[in-house]
Amino acid sequence: MSMTRRGFIVLSAAAASALSGAGGVQEPEARYRMAEHWWAMTIDIDKCIGCGNCVKACAEENQVPEGHFRTWVERYTVEAGDYEHPRVESPQGGKNGFPPAAQSTAKTFFVPKLCNHCEHSPCVQVCPVGATFESPDGVVLVDEKYCIGCRYCVQACPYGCRYIHPEKHTVDKCSLCYHRITKGLTTACCEACPTGARQLADLKNPKDPVHEFLRTHKVQVLKPHMATGSKVFYKDLDGAVR
């Protein structure tokens, strides 16, 4: 997925002109074929250090309004065996890291969260007008020119991934950096993650390391009983996480 600098400049110039020009929407990049991709993400809990770089990068990349989150990090603290009562914190979504936790006997770890880009999305199901949808390459997107701002999808998301944009008055959420991944870049959160805990994955690409990852590790999705077909796969996810 490497890309020459020249290619990048050409692309960003094309993108900039498409956005500023009066010509409206241009043809998408010729090389990108939606049918050849099926996007997902893997998260290795044992690599997350809770630095919050992903939250910060996401906010910068996507102009996420203050107090709302397309991705965030939670810190869990579970007393021995008491997985029903974990203590969870996420100050400012973990954007600026966490106040240091003292060593104790409790189990403690970080859990990054984002839209799960569900294959059977409850949010897509309930949208009354078709303003949120699953793209042919498996990304749940929002059409902000069509969203009426009824907030039904916010209610329907079991994971708390959606919010109403305070200025646009339409729903907003993680787009899996659709503008990046369709240009051969990785997502902003993965780009900024210093430990490689988060990895963008293309399930339709036979060479993607995701296949090896899913084959060799015990993985889980969030709230599997919701049966949403979540495509964010967690390695070493603790049973206390919800």
Partner: peptide, 28 residues
């Protein structure tokens, strides 16, 4: 493509990136 505006796909795609990506840095 489904119950949505097809143009919404391109509109989502055509935003400029803010992070250049490692390949761009390594170039120079």
């Amino acid at each position: 493509h489904g119950h949505y505006r097809a143009a919404a796909l391109e509109e989502n795609r055509l935003r400029p990136a803010v992070y250049a990506g490692q390949a761009a840095c390594s170039d120079c």
